[in-house]
Design a protein around this nucleic acid. Structure first.
Lengths: 212, 212
DNA sequence: ATATCAAGTAACTTGACAGTTACTTTGTAT
DNA sequence: ATACAAAGTAACTGTCAAGTTACTTGATAT
């Protein structure tokens, strides 16, 4: 008896999982581009090629959908970050590249900051844990002499996030400061090179010739 | 004959300038809190204690009002920045304090980034000029040995803005990383101390005892 | 085969919001 | 005094968007 849960690919027929997936993808686009207030439920529905009613069926309301989008993105990011290199020289450039490739995430964080400010955030506990692990890694690297040990680890982590994410969060300022668009390959090359030198300073070494 | 332009303080009577001022103040609050899309014209009118019609009278439409708010804030900031100290040791903490005291500005920049992305911004020319001057100052300090001369000045300026403004732009991340709220005096003290040490690293010196 | 429930649809309701109309009040120049 | 323009008001309008209603279609368990 084909209870039909293992290979539900009829392309034309119904498919709740695919429908939800399509809604989430469309919602990610719309929310990261327009924010919660600016996003239009009808646009999401149209882009997902579903009836608006289904969106309410699966996610309750607009905010429920937003929370789910954010929740999923957080998991995805946590997984990515776990694969980032440990060597501080390549760590900042790698974080920067991650930010370049996933501007949707930066934008979601930005909308979140504006909408909820300092209040408790969605999925607080999981994120707290994840950040605590990152602080711990900074501490270990300080112990190994790969990062200046006299700096507060929390503040240092925050600053590392700042220098890698800021250009994507404020593309207009990056352009004003460098004359290049952040999506320009030249800008990205320049920033990566800068961050490599910068990482040396954070280790307490002078950034002369790095090829030695 | 009292043509009445020099001392128009009747408190009860009409007063176009004061009305405009009140609208602009209320609009700054509303726009920085909710962004352009989220801001409500009626809320602005109510807060300014004026009739909505006057808002349209003076500023054309919602966007016209937004542009004017941004334009004024930009002037204000340019003036403030000109008074910031030149010594790099105190410069980062001073910028940070400025960011703390003027979160409305950070938020406006953030809304701007999200709404207009990399496109040409409001008041582009004036801002370009102002940033160019800041880059030039960085270059001078590099020449004087107050900042590491091997770093690209534009990227360096961008990074200085990043480390000073990021905590206010992403208060939720600052809290996750340090356990403190950004509006907490303790957080601000900690960050200022950190930035002082950080400035020494940027000069290429090791940040040992700083009291000497 | 058919009852049952989940998936899906179109049209509707309700409220909110940007912008307007048609009007009154107030100051000032002649 | 009075004509005139700018300052100000209340109530309205058209549009748009979130969320709902009442319905049809399709899969599957018995």
């Amino acid at each position: 008896m084909k209870t039909g849960q293992q290979a539900t690919q009829k392309t034309g027929g119904r498919n709740p999982q695919q429908t939800q997936q399509r809604i989430l993808e469309a919602a990610l686009q719309e929310f990261s581009a327009k924010g919660f207030a600016g996003a239009r439920v009808d646009v999401i529905a149209r882009r997902a090629r579903i009836n608006k009613r289904m969106l309410y069926h699966y996610f309750g309301d607009k905010e429920g959908l937003f929370r789910e989008v954010l929740r999923r993105k957080i998991s995805e990011r946590a997984a990515w970050l776990a694969t980032a290199p440990e060597e501080p020289m390549e760590r900042l450039p790698a974080w920067f590249q991650l930010a370049c490739r996933d501007r949707e995430w930066i934008q979601l964080l930005q909308w979140e900051a504006l909408q909820w400010g300092e209040k408790k955030v969605i999925d607080e506990e999981r994120r707290q844990e994840s950040v605590a692990r990152a602080v711990e890694r900074v501490r270990q690297q300080q112990a190994k002499g790969l990062l200046d040990p006299s700096l507060d680890p929390g503040q240092l982590l925050l600053s590392m996030m700042a220098v890698t994410a800021y250009p994507m969060a404020f593309p207009q300022l990056a352009r004003l400061a460098t004359g290049l668009s952040v999506s320009d390959a030249e800008f990205q090359k320049q920033r990566e090179a800068f961050l490599r030198q910068f990482a040396m300073l954070l280790a307490g070494k002078k950034p002369g010739a790095e090829s030695a």
